[in-house]
Design a protein around this nucleic acid. Structure first.
Lengths: 180, 180
DNA sequence: GTCCACATGTAACTGGTTACATGATTGG
DNA sequence: CCAATCATGTAACCAGTTACATGTGGAC
């Protein structure tokens, strides 16, 4: 049950319409919690019904008209509650590791090119994060918000660093393996 | 669509019944692709209908009776195809990072104890992986299978190492933050 | 004969994905 | 007036989760 809380967070940072949220979920928050516009509209509907958010009064009745939402006190309270709640980490679920395990049984033929492709994608994501770090987190800016945002960004950087290193090693090992 | 392929891999490694598979999904393959017994039985049914696996002939007709499955040639072919297929990496989805982002808006009160708990859980998982490494991967054992399995295990070790380090740093930063 | 562990399943629900529908606004 | 873009939605589907149902076989 994280999507509604992701939306509440985004709306507290800045009141937005569904499409604006969708755009922000393509960067920023979406880097660790992605969502499509269909999910977002569905969830905005629920949050409005539960009186956690409301549409800014500007009498837009229907389709095609922009509808900007803001968080109500009840919504902020719910987000505060959820943030402090104890939650178990989800077990790892990674299709690439699964495919390697399968390759150990049926052979590694054909998997190498996709490993290389993944390596490129992770390198690109790492470069994007590092660019954000250069741009938004120069030493000196030091509000609590900045520190927390930087901490989160560093998790992204370290994860992408892990993947690039591990994939590099995996490709090396595959080369050294006797062909199957 | 990874679960059927996880099951095919497990059955190729060793023909098993549904409950035996469930047990193996609690360790081993389950370390990176977990599944409950309900999922597994549902999927075994589908795989049997599609003639990718079959129950070993021993005329067990129904409930309460053990039913051992093995992979048919069509199933092995499907797994080979899937393994070599090009697949996009799934974007990161992490509730803990989301909660930190929420905490940057509504305050960090209460989140510290859960970070500490996560740290303990990741340290425990790391210790478990390192124990497996000591036990199963002494230098010398060097078949292609061993090398691939070790490579996968190292991904687990490196990921848990990342989380323990990042969480340690996160707890430090939280301490230094002015109380909210 | 009762309880427990083994073993296989069904049903309902939830969240995420994919495909499609529809209206408003603006630039050429 | 037409196309593109902005904007909001509906519907069907699929995978994973949670709760529950049912039968077998052995230990006591």
């Amino acid at each position: 049950m994280s999507l509604p809380h992701a939306i509440l967070t985004a709306l507290l940072e800045k009141p937005s319409s569904g499409l604006e949220l969708t755009r922000r979920f393509d960067r920023s928050i979406g880097y660790f919690w992605s969502a499509t516009h269909q999910q977002i509209y569905r969830e905005l509907g629920r949050l409005e019904r539960e009186a956690h958010i409301r549409a800014l009064p500007a009498e837009q009745p229907a389709r095609g008209q922009k509808k900007v939402y803001e968080v109500l006190p009840a919504g902020r309270a719910e987000l505060t509650r959820w943030t402090a709640e104890s939650q178990d980490p989800k077990p790892l679920r990674d299709a690439l590791l699964l495919r390697l395990r399968a390759a150990a049984v049926v052979g590694t033929a054909g998997i190498e090119s996709d490993l290389r492709r993944h390596l490129t994608l992770h390198q690109r994501q790492l470069a994007e994060y590092e660019e954000i770090q250069r741009r938004d987190f120069q030493p000196g800016k030091d509000t609590p918000q900045d520190r927390l945002h930087h901490l989160i960004l560093r998790a992204g950087i370290d994860l992408e660093t892990f993947w690039t290193q591990w994939l590099t090693r995996a490709l090396q090992e595959l080369e050294e393996l006797p062909a199957q």
